[in-house]
Amino acid sequence: MKLTSRRKIALASSVMISAFAMTATFQSSSKAADCGTWGIAMHAWNGYTASAQVVTEVAKAQGCTINQSTLTEGGTTYDAMEAGTTDVIIEDWGGGRWQKWTDRGAVVLVGANGNVGKIGMFVAPWMVKKYPGITNSKNLNKYASLFKTADSGGKGAWFEGPPGYTTIGEKMIKANKLKFKAIATGSEAALISTITKAEKNKKPALIYWWEPSTLFVKVPGLDKARVNFPKNDWSDAAKASGLTDYPATPLEKLATKKLMDSGSVFAKIVKNFKWTNADQNAVAADIEGGMTPEKAAQKWIKAHPAQVKAWLA
C-alpha cells in the first residue's frame, strides 16, 4: 500500500513535470491582434458561402477570430444580430424586410456588395428546343398540361423557391393568368434535384432559380431556359394590377452597429467588400467542384491581391 501510493505520487509528479517542461518549449506564440472576435451568418446557398468565406479568410489573415453560424435568412438572422449571436450578413436579397430591425438601431445597412440578383422561373433546358416559344410567358398556358404532376391538382406544377427566399409565385401566376399551381419545395436542394433529374430524364419541369449561381454551369443551357415575363408596370400605380415578374436586385450587406462602431479591421473589410457576379461564381464553382470553402476562398484571394488590398484600405 505504501509502495503503491508512493508510486502514484511519483507518476503524477512526473507527468506534471513533463507537462510543464513541454509548456516551456512549445508555448504558443499566437497572440490575437486587436481585431477581436466577430460572427458572420452563413446562409444556405452556394454563392453566399463563397462571399462569406472570402470575407472570413481575409479577416482571419488580419488576426480576427471569425465565428461562422449557420442561420436561415431574413428574420431569424436579424434577430440573431440583435441578440449579439452574429454580426454580419454579406448578401441579403430581402429588399427592405430588415426595416423593423434597422429602425430599432442594433442592425445597420452597410451597402451594396456588388452582386446583382435576378430571380426568375426556368424550364428544363431540353424543352426550349422541343417546344418553341415556351420561354415566352404568353405561351406557358399552352404547355401547362405537360407540367402536371400527382401533386399539382390538375394544373401545371410551378416549383416555388425555399420558404425564406423572396417568392411571389402565387402573385405572378395570378397577374399573368397562368394555369399553374405554386408547389412548396422547401430548400435549394429540392430545386436542384428537380431540375437536374428533369434534364437528365427529359421530363418537364418549371422551377424558381436565380443569378448569380453556379447551377448554370452544372445544367448547361439553363441560362437560355428563363421564362420571360412582362416587366412590372409601375408607370401608373392605379393600373398596375399585380406583380408580373421579379425585379433585378442589388444585393446588400448588413452588420451590427456594435461591429461598425468598433473601429475593428473586420468592420473595414465588411464595409469595403465588393465584387462581381463573375467573382462569386468562380469561387462557388470551386466549392461545388469539391474544394472546401476555405481552400476555394484562399485560391481566389491569392489570384486577386489588388482587389483584396483595396478592401483593407
Partner: peptide, 24 residues
C-alpha cells in the same frame, strides 16, 4: 420538418414564418 422538402402544410408555414417578417 417535411416543410423543408415540399410537404407544404403547417410545417412549411412555420419555416417561412421564421424568415419572412410579414409572415411571422
Amino acid at each position: 420538418i417535411g416543410g423543408f422538402v415540399g410537404s407544404g402544410g403547417l410545417g412549411y408555414i412555420v419555416i417561412m414564418g421564421s424568415s419572412k417578417p410579414e409572415l411571422q
